[in-house]
Design a protein around this nucleic acid. Structure first.
Length: 270
DNA sequence: ATCCAGGTTGTCC
DNA sequence: GGACAACATGGA
């Protein structure tokens, strides 16, 4: 069935390509249609005038996708609150329609390990090769094969040489270290949902290649701990230029979401 | 050709 | 504690 979500503040173009997820593409055939993969599920979406349609999904997958796209959060209220601050008001206007996704923890962890000292286009390419080479073929494939994100078990079993075709560069050994620690339960990703941000971050940073910023990305984009603020090169510039004393009070406990609007804004208006 | 990209690590002090 | 080069890869 198709499921139509009638809502403002939900723009697929912004949400899918603002650097939080890396497995979505624009449809070549159909206007305003996007294709993507998450949690071993394939999704087709269409941007509507006043909302978004999930196309041809199984009824039983609806709760998953509603959760994934954060459909219960009131983004109108959120951006109104952020707009007390002048710079944030501009960012909210420019980045209108971005929703912070709730992604699968292991996929998010590996994706943002790959993101370090890298650009978004190449991150997407590496992840795509990783899935093609080590992920399982998904049933909903249709014409060309679609692949799920590789499991920790699969990646943990790889040598650096076997991982080389993905062209992750120096990050290959970090990917393997993360996969091994997850496989061997040195880190229990499921337990982080219930943990406070500080403790969860310390757990993530046990992994080689996971520092302050990557850990915050995982907290924000997988566990939706919206107080986590990933400080990449762009946000550091924003902080230095506009917020030397830290983010304004109006962001409250959602500085991570404010960060995402500022990231989109500054990156496209440099 | 040189610089840069959603950084982290190891090694200096 | 902070500074700083090294790290693979590929596009601008």
């Amino acid at each position: 069935m198709d499921f139509y979500i009638n809502t403002s503040h939900f723009q697929l173009e912004k949400t899918l390509f603002c650097g939080q997820a890396f497995r979505f593409t624009r449809s070549r055939e159909e206007k305003n249609v996007y294709l993507g993969i998450a949690g071993n599920r394939v999704i087709k979406l269409r941007q509507e005038k006043d909302g978004v349609s999930f196309l041809n999904i199984k009824d039983s997958d609806l709760p998953f996708w509603k959760e994934y796209f954060d459909t219960e959060t009131d983004y109108a209220a959120l951006t109104e609150r952020f707009s007390e601050d002048d710079t944030l008001k501009k960012a909210c206007g420019f980045a209108y329609g971005i929703r912070v996704l709730k992604q699968e923890p292991f996929e998010t962890l590996i994706s943002f390990i790959i993101s370090q000292n890298n650009n978004i286009a190449r991150i997407s390419g590496i992840i795509s090769r990783l899935c093609e080479q080590f992920g399982k073929i998904l049933p909903q494939g249709g014409g060309e094969n679609l692949y799920g994100f590789p499991t920790a078990e699969r990646l943990a079993a790889l040598s650096a040489e076997e991982l080389a075709p993905a062209r992750a560069g120096f990050r290959a050994r970090y990917i393997i270290d993360a996969a091994v620690k997850v496989r061997d339960k040195l880190i229990d990703l499921d337990s982080l949902y219930e943990m406070n941000a500080c403790n969860a971050k310390n757990e993530l940073m046990k992994i080689k290649g996971v520092g302050d910023k990557v850990a915050d990305c995982v907290l924000l984009f997988a566990y939706r701990k919206t107080e986590a603020v990933p400080k990449d090169v762009w946000i550091k510039r924003v902080l230095a230029e506009y917020y030397p004393g830290g983010f304004p009070e109006c962001v409250g406990n959602d500085a991570g979401i404010a960060q995402q609007y500022l990231f989109e804004y500054i990156r496209n208006n440099k």
